[in-house]
Computed example of a mutant assay.
Amino acid sequence: MSVTFEPFDSKGRLRHLLTLDGMPRDTLVALLDRAQALLDGDVRNERLAGIAICTLFFEPSTRTRLSFQRAAQRLGADVLGFDASTSSTTKGETALDTFRNIEAMGVRGFVVRHAADGAVAALARAAAPDVAVLNAGDGRTAHPTQGLLDMLTLRQAKGADFSGLRVAIVGDVKHSRVARSDLQALRTLGAGEIRVCGPERLLPDDGTLAGCEVGDDLDAALDGVDAVMMLRLQRERMEEGLVDSLEDYHRDFGLDARRLRRAAPDAVVLHPGPMNRGVEISDEVADGPQSLILQQVRNGVAVRMAVLETLLG
């Protein structure tokens, strides 16, 4: 399920953003630095004035799609929205034909979400030399801008030096493109300790968890950690029978206030959304003082501005 990362064009500029796997640390840090600078004051500019960007989403989305649209608007770009449910894909048109037709209209940037692993990389390979493709989530493979905004949120809370950071990633890692991008970014930034916890049937066996402490005891995984990254139970991607019941899942792997007390006193909680309240996370944690979930959403606009600027500016 790995994606070959082809980060730079012939002029040494980042051309596509398909994954964080293999991204040089300097490039990743530069994107985080630029996003923070945008948050600190350079919120609106016209760096992409006259450039057309299409949000090409073949899967539903709220946060990712709207924050990309908001980011593009703040950069002065012309934004075209694509809704698969009302497009010619319902008549049998392929994603590649859809992409090529929109590209022929003069669109230079594509933000693509697709259910199939590798689908976004396939469109990037077909793109014209002056066209940039950004992966907004493909199958179980990658969600690089979510990984970046999660790292920015952690950096704001815990500082830029990740070497002493203890992070627990909890839940349905097997079906999570977010978890894969977060793991790649945490390794690149040198996180001191990464713990992964979930039901054995929801943990991947493809090398994704190399170097992590892996287990199915949530209480042990939470002991003393500085950050807890909860994952959505992705029932739409999983086979029947991987979870006995939602009640059992919440009992064994749901984060509530009692369990959170096992973490460090100043531990923070992240979740990529959408949340299944009462399944992987309780209301008291999601809405509590240690939750950075809405901060993640705010950071998403700045991160996506930084990426769009870098690829298209």
Rank of each mutant, 00 (worst) to 15 (best):
G22K: 10
V43H: 07
G50A: 00
G41C: 06
E59S: 02
C54T: 14
D21K: 15
E59A: 04
G41K: 08
M23Y: 01
A35T: 08
C54M: 13
V29A: 13
R44F: 05
Q36V: 07
D42R: 14
T19E: 06
G50R: 06
C54K: 01
L20A: 05
L56V: 04
G50Q: 06
R25L: 14
V29M: 14
I51C: 12
R25P: 04
L48R: 00
C54V: 13
L48P: 02
R25A: 15
D21L: 12
Q36C: 01
T55Y: 05
G41Q: 03
F57H: 02
L32W: 10
R34K: 13
A52E: 11
I53Y: 06
M23C: 04
R44T: 01
A52Q: 12
G41V: 05
L20T: 03
D40R: 09
L31N: 05
T27M: 13
V29D: 10
D33M: 06
F57K: 03
L39T: 13
R47L: 11
L38Q: 14
T19L: 08
E59P: 01
D21H: 12
M23G: 08
A52G: 14
D26R: 15
I53G: 01
G41I: 04
G50L: 06
L38E: 10
Q36M: 10
R44C: 00
N45V: 07
M23W: 02
N45E: 08
M23Q: 07
I51E: 11
T55W: 01
A35C: 07
E59F: 06
L38A: 12
L20S: 09
M23E: 00
L31I: 08
I53P: 01
G50T: 03
C54D: 08
A37N: 14
G50Y: 02
R34D: 08
L39A: 14
E59D: 10
E46Y: 07
V43P: 01
P24I: 12
D21T: 10
R44I: 04
L39P: 06
G22C: 03
F58N: 02
G22F: 05
D40L: 05
L28G: 09
D33F: 02
G50K: 00
D40S: 09
F57E: 04
T55H: 04
R47V: 02
L32F: 10
T19R: 05
N45M: 03
A35N: 05
L56C: 01
D40I: 05
P24L: 11
E59M: 02
R47M: 01
T19W: 02
L28P: 07
R44H: 05
A37S: 15
P24R: 11
N45W: 05
D21I: 04
A30L: 02
G22N: 04
D40E: 12
L38W: 13
L38N: 15
G41M: 08
L28W: 10
T27F: 09
T55D: 07
L32A: 10
C54G: 08
T27W: 13
N45A: 09
A37C: 11
V43L: 12
R44V: 04
L39H: 14
D33E: 12
